[in-house]
């Protein structure tokens, strides 16, 4: 016998005048292979066309469908209802700006992060389109691949107490992102330059170590390893650095 599932979904459209935040319930019978992504689409198609939520790839690649499912941040497309109780509460991710219902704007947050941490390869080498591609050692390529798997869904940020109370903290995803460039031999940035970006409370030294990010990352990226790597590297770099400060009186 199939279970009767009840979805209690957060509803609020900040752009609709007079709209108030509320929980709305939808119910239908569970079927085989049902994911949260399929369930939300079914609700939108058959019960309530006004329901807002994000999705693109339905295969845990785009990171758009992150939401709080029974209190924990998950990708809707990767969450099977069979692993959940019959009553499912769905909320939008905290920290990010609410667009409406379950849809949040992670794009602006991540865009700011990319600019702040300069998430691209910094090199003085001129690109020669005719030259052979420079080879990278397999071991380093594999090392870089781990942090590179991040799909920027925002789950680690949503579940981090520090990111929730300190607006400027770049979160596990940000530190993970920078540690990826630190490992990359093509990036010519010096330790001092990385230190300017993450050698502070908003970056590597801001993490309190609650590890909800590592435990709840939908991509299972070893975030503790990445965070600790960045912290150790930045501490070692910082201790060696000389700062010519300007005294402000």
């Amino acid at each position: 016998m199939a279970r009767q599932l009840t979805f209690s979904i957060f509803r609020y459209n900040p752009n609709k005048p007079g709209d108030k935040p509320r929980m709305q319930e939808y119910s239908f019978e569970e079927f085989e292979g049902l994911t949260m992504f399929v369930a939300l689409n079914k609700i939108r198609e058959e019960m309530d066309p006004t329901l807002m939520f994000d999705f693109v790839c339905r295969a845990a690649i785009c990171g758009s469908c992150a939401m709080m499912i029974n209190g924990r941040p998950r990708l809707a497309c990767k969450t099977m209802t069979i692993n959940l109780p019959s009553r499912i509460t769905v909320m939008p991710l905290p920290v990010f700006k609410l667009i409406g219902d379950l849809s949040v704007d992670t794009g602006t947050w991540f865009r700011n992060l990319q600019v702040k941490t300069e998430s691209w390869i910094h090199t003085n080498k001129k690109f020669d389109p005719n030259a052979l591609e420079v080879r990278m050692e397999n071991k380093i390529a594999e090392q870089i691949y781990e942090p590179e798997r991040c799909v920027e869904c925002g789950c680690c940020v949503a579940t981090c107490v520090t990111a929730n109370i300190r607006e400027d903290f770049i979160g596990a995803t940000g530190i993970n992102r920078v540690s990826r460039f630190m490992m990359d031999p093509r990036d010519e940035r010096s330790d001092a330059e990385y230190y300017e970006v993450v050698g502070n409370e908003d970056g590597a030294f801001g993490c309190v170590g609650l590890m909800a990010c590592a435990d709840l990352c939908p991509m299972e990226i070893p975030l503790q390893t990445q965070l600790a790597y960045a912290r150790r590297k930045m501490a070692a770099a910082g201790l060696k650095l000389q700062f010519a400060g300007v005294k402000i009186s």
Partner: peptide
């Protein structure tokens, strides 16, 4: 690459080593 070119911070966000020392402490 020269450091100053890559600084993306406002003046009041320049911490130097304070945050590092505080974290170590």
């Amino acid at each position: 690459m020269e450091l100053a070119k890559n600084l993306q911070k406002t003046l009041n966000k320049s911490y130097g080593k304070t945050d590092l020392y505080v974290d170590l402490a």
